[in-house]
């Protein structure tokens, strides 16, 4: 079953005047439920635009997007916000944690905007924090955490509403290689053990090869779409 079905998706940016920038030019592909896909490409290839469209943060100029069986191209902004909350988790390059807020509060943030009853918030947030191995730092502020730990908090935040898909935008981009590997091992674990669909953006082949499949973009179009033959296991590397 496909969780993401994209057909001739196009995004054009207008910069006020007559100049148009075609960021994404009629891209079509599918992602199966439980699949781990990496999207690669140089800067300006349209990979961020694609991730924003797939992550329901932006609306396409034309084309069709079916997310989890729903044609979301017709959804209103509020409906998209609610869908993002329930079915999508985001991990950003810059972590984007709230300053002067504890780990637990940061992870709880998506629950504020959800229909989940408040009595469950604490338990759900704790479980999410424990699942990324930060159970002992639950009341720490983000200034007390290393970059790798911050990104793990962000992953916990993405997980807390138990979404179908996790979109990760260069999640290791701001991390040293050791922390990066740990983060990748967590993401891989979520995919393999919990069956989460992962869509990951990266420009590093070494990161992309943790996925099952790599979509390469060039100038807004798909250049190649192929399975990873020699898949890396972050866990093994981490043990090394």
């Amino acid at each position: 079953m496909n969780i993401i079905e994209v057909e001739k998706l196009k995004k054009v940016y207008h910069d006020g005047g007559e100049t148009e920038t075609i960021a994404l030019d009629e891209v079509s592909f599918n992602v199966r439920k439980g699949e781990f896909v990496a999207i690669m490409g140089p800067s300006g290839s349209g990979k961020s635009t694609l991730l924003h469209l797939l992550g329901l943060l932006d609306e396409p100029t034309s084309g069709r997007y079916n997310f989890n069986g729903k044609n979301v191209t017709t959804y209103s902004q509020d409906e998209l916000a609610s869908l993002r909350n329930r079915e999508v988790g985001f991990v950003f390059q810059a972590f984007n944690l709230l300053p002067r807020t504890t780990v637990l509060e940061n992870v709880k943030l998506p629950l504020y905007y959800s229909d989940v009853p408040e009595k469950d918030w604490d338990r759900m947030a704790r479980e999410a924090v424990e699942s990324v191995g930060l159970g002992n730092r639950i009341n720490h502020g983000q200034s007390e955490l290393s970059g790798g730990e911050r990104q793990r908090v962000a992953i916990a935040r993405a997980l807390v509403t138990n979404p179908e898909v996790i979109f990760a935008d260069e999640p290791t981009g701001n991390l040293d290689s050791k922390s990066g590997k740990l983060v990748m091992s967590i993401i891989q674990h979520l995919n393999e053990e919990h069956g989460k669909t992962i869509v990951l953006i990266t420009h590093e082949t070494s990161t992309a090869e943790h996925a099952e499949r790599i979509i390469r973009l060039m100038d807004g179009s798909i250049e190649s779409d192929s399975p990873v033959t020699k898949r890396l296991s972050a866990n093994d590397e981490f043990v090394k």
């Binding site: 916000a81 993002r84 909350n85 985001f90 984007n96 709230l98 998506p110 905007y113 959800s114």
Partner: peptide, 16 residues
């Protein structure tokens, strides 16, 4: 601005 973007990405709507 970033915080607003983050909250929206996590599911906050305009009214929130």
């Amino acid at each position: 601005t970033r915080e607003i973007g983050l909250r929206k990405a996590l599911g906050a709507n305009n009214r929130d």
